[in-house]
Design a protein around this nucleic acid. Sequence first.
RNA 1: CGCGGGGUAGAGCAGUUCGGUAGCUCGUCGGGCUCAUAACCCGGAGGUCGUGAGGUUCAAAUCCCACCCCCGCAA
Length: 308
Amino acid sequence: MRILFMGTPDFALFSLRALVEAGEDVVGVVTQPDKPRGRGYTLTPPPVKVYAEEKGLPVYQPRTLRDEAFAALLREIDPEVIVVVAFGKILPVNVLEYPKYGCVNVHGSLLPAYRGAAPMQRAIIEGCTETGITTMFMAEGLDTGDMLLKKSVAIDLHDTFETVHDKLGECGAELLLRTLALLEKGEILPEKQEDALATYAAKIEKEDCLLDFSRTAKEVHDRIRGLSPIPLSFTHTPDGKLLKVVASDLADGKGRPGEVLSLSGGRITVACGEGAVALLSVLPEGKKKMSAADFINGRRISVGDMLS
RNA sequence: CGCGGGGUAGAGCAGUUCGGUAGCUCGUCGGGCUCAUAACCCGGAGGUCGUGAGGUUCAAAUCCCACCCCCGCAA
């Protein structure tokens, strides 16, 4: 099959790499335009572009898919199937309808749960013990298309966005290959989503990252790991400085929510509304990630301090 | 020139405003206490203070100049 791949970040790379390594006929890669990022607004290419160029694949970075220029490009490339993984743009109807085999999307949740932008993070934050990958045909609505294949992946108490992201990335790649193989043979049965059961995983906003220690220890811990290592949850030390939290664990103890209960064992134990969490690794404002032990040794925190 | 923080012993920091060759916590090494210990006590080692046969000065980690590197925010 002539495959046109559309994707942007690292998550999409798992799938693109799998296609390439499986010898699939990837005839083109569409990704977001380079964007100014980081200090000094350096123009940075998306990960998918970097990889695609390494492999000598044609890369396209249209500003919009909704013009005649892209329609013409599509006819020129003439894909039989379009694979979309974390692309970051909505596909217009004319694109959705173009390929003979349709547009296949790899989504990081067990649909219809967690439709939307941040399914992995939301699943962890909400304490799920299971999530997964769904491949589906793309439809006009947001992640509403008919489902093709599904595979679940466990989330354990110490998984983070990073570990789940990688597990699902690999799982997605594997499922994508199987989906395409079955699709080509016509041996796949699309299944409608039960819209009544749908939930949404909204994009992560800054306010999602502020820790609320009045919640239960489990909820605080789930939020910390669901946002680690990107973008990281945060709180503030008594001097008003930002303190991001990289890693945590559940702990024993009780006190006023946000109160630092103990600094022993290289752990910063903080009281929550119910129970306590131990901060194991942090990122102070203007500094780099460090262990809680290092932060403690620098004397930047004392027992009794309130984090907010 | 988007905003900002920083480069001082293996690690995390203080000291720089008011120049006078450096201190804290941890680690490490040795000794002690203890049934024992990641606990405690005593002692030690370890630093060209990012770079510059730079500038100012009797004297610079501390002031000035240039350069290199790291990081946070915002996108």
